[in-house]
Design a protein around this nucleic acid. Structure first.
Lengths: 209, 209
DNA sequence: ACATGTGAACTGCTTCACAGCG
DNA sequence: CGCTGTGAAGCAGTTCACATGT
C-alpha cells in the first residue's frame, strides 16, 4: 500500500467522529461537502483522503453513514480491542487512566507501572499499579500492543528501550524529550511545552505586544 | 514577516531544548549538523529554519550557544512571563497544574476555574480553584494571555466562545472535539484519542496482524 | 442533475549543492 | 578549510476541475 500521510490519518479520525455522531442521530447518508464543513477542510480533501483506501460513496448521493463508519473503523484498526499499559503512575498517568476516550474506542488498560514502592499495589482510577520489575514478565504473558509513557524526561529513553525489548511496538509518549526508536516502532510524542511555544510564537509574531 | 510553517516552529522548540542543555554544560558553540543529529533532522533543515529569522551563525565555526539560545527564546516569545488560566479542575487540569514544563518556561498559572461547588475554593497543586462565574471579571483584571481548556467535550465550544469574548486569544485545548474559532485566535488541540488512532493505524497497516 | 473519484496543476516544505565568508 | 546561508531542484500534500456513474 502507498504511504499514507499523517495528516490524512488524522483527518480520517475526525471524519469518523462526525460519522458516529450522525450514526447516533440516525442519518443515512452524508456528502463529502458536509464532512468537510464540519471537519474544517474541503470536499476534495475528504474525497482524496478516502480514495487512498477505496470507493465508499455513491455518485450523486454521497456516503452511507454506517458503511463509511465501518470502513473507517477498519482502516484505523479500531475493529479490535487494543491492550494498553501505562508506564508511570504520576499525575499524567492518572489523568490518562481515567480518560474516557480510551475505553470508548476499545482500548483496554491492563495496568500501570511504577518503581515507587509507595505506589505499587495501589489503584489508579481502578487500574492496578504494578512494580516495574514485573513489566517484562507481564508483557510476555499479556501481550499488550501499546505503551503510554508518562514518566520524567530523563527516564524516558531508557524506558522506551525497555518497552522495545519487551516487544511492544507502539508508544504514546508524554515525556518532553526527543526519543530515538528503531524503524519497526511507531512513537507519537505529545509535548505540551512545545504546543505552548507554538502559542507564544503566534502571539508574539502576530501583532505588536 | 513571511508566514512560518508550524513544523518550523516545532523544530525551533526542539533546538532550544538542546541549546539549553548545552548551555548548562558550558559548551560555547554548536554546528547545524550537531543540532540536526540530536533533533532528528538534517543540517540543511536547521539552517533553513534559522534563516527565516536572521543570520545567527559564523561561517566555518557554527553557532554561539548562548547567542542562539537567546535568539530562539526571543523568536518563540519566551522572553516574557505569560499568564495562563486553566479551565476545568478535573484530572487533566490537575496534571497540567503540576506540570513542571510550565513554570520552567516562564508560564505562570493564575488560577483554575470550575463550576462544581465541591471544588471551588480548594487548591489544585497549589493553584486556587475559582468559580467560573468570576472568570470574566478575573480576566478583565489580570489579563491572562493563554487559556488551557481541560473540560468535557460537550462544554468545550461554549467555553471557547466565552474565553474569546473575555479577550483571550490563545487556547490550548485538551477536549477531544473540533473547535471553531475566529481568525484572530490561535487554538492548538491536543487530542489523545486521535494520537492513539494514529498508532492503531500504523500497527494495522504495517504488517499482518 | 448531482456528488463522487481522480489525473493534473499548484502550493509549500524539504533537500541539494555551492557560493560566500570567517 | 569548514560551516553557514540560500537560491534552485525535488517532493509531498492540497486544490482544481471534470469525466464518470447513478
Amino acid at each position: 500500500m502507498k504511504r499514507i500521510a499523517d495528516s490524512t490519518v488524522r483527518r480520517l479520525s475526525i471524519y469518523l467522529r462526525f460519522l458516529e455522531e450522525f450514526e447516533g442521530r440516525g442519518l443515512a447518508t452524508v456528502s463529502s461537502e458536509e464532512l468537510a464543513r464540519r471537519g474544517g477542510t474541503t470536499s476534495a480533501q475528504v474525497r482524496k483522503d478516502l480514495s487512498f483506501f477505496g470507493s465508499f460513496g455513491k455518485r450523486g448521493l454521497g456516503y452511507s453513514v454506517p458503511e463509511l463508519s465501518t470502513a473507517l473503523r477498519d482502516i484505523l484498526g479500531l475493529g479490535k480491542e487494543w491492550k494498553v499499559v501505562i508506564i508511570g503512575a504520576g499525575k499524567i498517568g492518572a489523568a490518562l487512566a481515567q480518560y474516557r476516550g480510551f475505553r470508548q474506542r476499545g482500548f483496554v488498560i491492563m495496568a500501570a507501572y511504577d518503581t515507587n514502592p509507595e505506589k505499587i499495589g495501589r489503584k489508579l482510577e481502578g487500574i492496578e499499579i504494578r512494580d516495574m520489575k514485573r513489566f517484562e514478565d507481564d508483557v510476555a504473558e499479556q501481550k499488550p500492543e501499546i505503551a503510554v509513557l508518562a514518566i520524567p524526561p530523563d527516564e524516558a529513553q531508557s524506558s522506551l528501550d525497555r518497552i522495545a525489548r519487551a516487544g511492544i511496538r507502539a508508544v504514546l509518549n508524554f515525556a518532553p524529550v526527543q526519543l530515538h526508536a528503531t524503524g519497526d516502532m511507531t512513537v507519537k510524542t505529545v509535548n505540551m511545552a512545545m504546543e505552548l511555544e507554538g502559542l507564544t510564537f503566534a502571539l508574539t509574531n502576530k501583532d505588536g505586544n
